[in-house]
Design a protein around this nucleic acid. Structure first.
Lengths: 199, 199
DNA sequence: GTCTATACGCCGATAGAC
DNA sequence: GTCTATCGGCGTATAGAC
């Protein structure tokens, strides 16, 4: 689970501790149910005061998490695109990443899939205007042009593909599906791909 | 949009006003970003005090909404089951209902599909243990037994089917898909059904 | 049943010693 | 950079007149 740590890594060790503590708490209890006192003690500090030497306020902690996580995702998508030519392979790579993260960095996935970010980060870009997401739409568009994917609204194709994958992963994250995400990966990938594949 | 009103209807006119105001605010701003002051003024009251004559506290307002909405959903599922024999028809009926509600009672659907209910209603049953949901799983199990639906874990089938539908409806609700839900209904239903249908 | 007025607590945030 | 101490404010909730 230090996949988590790697993704949110920032300048100093203390900042990382605070970010990691906040991530876990936000993911499990929600942003508004998490007080700075909670974060402070989870980061082994006596008081909330010290936190303000590292972050301007509570919202900026969440904003940092948002930035780290989406930057990391965007970079991962770039790598996947570089390593694969066909849209089907690229989408498969992204699906693989999501399943892997669900098992190895569940708090990150909870942040991505479950939290309503706009509720506590109203000024950040909605997920769908995020570079990572825009690239995913481009992959789908390429797939349509290449005849791999059915000719439908790319946003709809995205909804079908990630609808299946994300919903499955949400059930893993909340324990309704009680095996590791990897167990469901092959059949779920296939179902998702078939939902948008041509023919 | 008085489909909304009908679903949350309770004892008195004033209670309905409060519930409806709260529903809209919770759905658009989130539970924690909504103060009782917000609800009071949206329900044309000068102060929060009057609210306490109708509800014990803020959480009980949300709990009332939860009960009304899930009860109503459960009853709708019962009717759909009574009017249709085949699992495919029953699932189609539920999908139809969801699309209809998205256009005619969007706040209800926002409450159902987007809010993280456990964050502010920790003592209520999780959605998946709710009567309506249990009945849906039963429909899927019947469909598997009857050979209509592929022989996979019913929870997974549920994830595939409603993954596609709910994700599509979420995009409609947040405006990313800018036509009415009904426009996407035929093709989305088909994609969802094909994701679990046998052969 | 709705109003005015007010109490109370929690939490985010700051000042300043060390 | 972390601590003690403390402030200010918002939001929930109550008391009590009308």
């Amino acid at each position: 689970m230090d996949q988590e740590k790697e993704i949110i890594q920032s300048k100093t060790e203390t900042q990382d501790e605070i970010l990691l503590a906040a991530l876990k708490l936000f993911a499990t209890k929600g942003y508004f149910n998490t007080s700075l006192t909670d974060i402070a003690e989870a980061a082994s500090m006596k008081n909330t005061a010290a936190i303000y030497h590292h972050f301007k306020n509570k919202q900026m902690i969440a904003a940092q998490l948002y930035t780290k996580i989406f930057d990391n995702l965007s970079i991962s998508v770039d790598e996947i695109r570089r390593r694969n030519q066909k849209s089907s392979e690229q989408l498969r790579g992204i699906a693989d990443l999501f399943f892997k993260l669900t098992d190895e960095a569940p708090y990150i996935m909870q942040f991505l899939l479950i939290l309503n970010l706009n509720e506590f980060l109203p000024e950040e870009k909605p997920v769908m205007e995020t570079p990572a997401f825009i690239k995913i739409i481009k992959i789908i568009q390429s797939g349509i042009k290449a005849g791999e994917i059915r000719d439908i609204d790319p946003l709809l194709a995205n909804a079908y593909f990630f609808g299946i994958i994300n919903k499955t992963l949400r059930l893993v994250l909340n324990g309704a599906l009680n095996k590791k995400a990897g167990v469901y990966q092959p059949q779920t990938w296939l179902a998702a791909w078939n939902a948008i594949a041509k023919k």
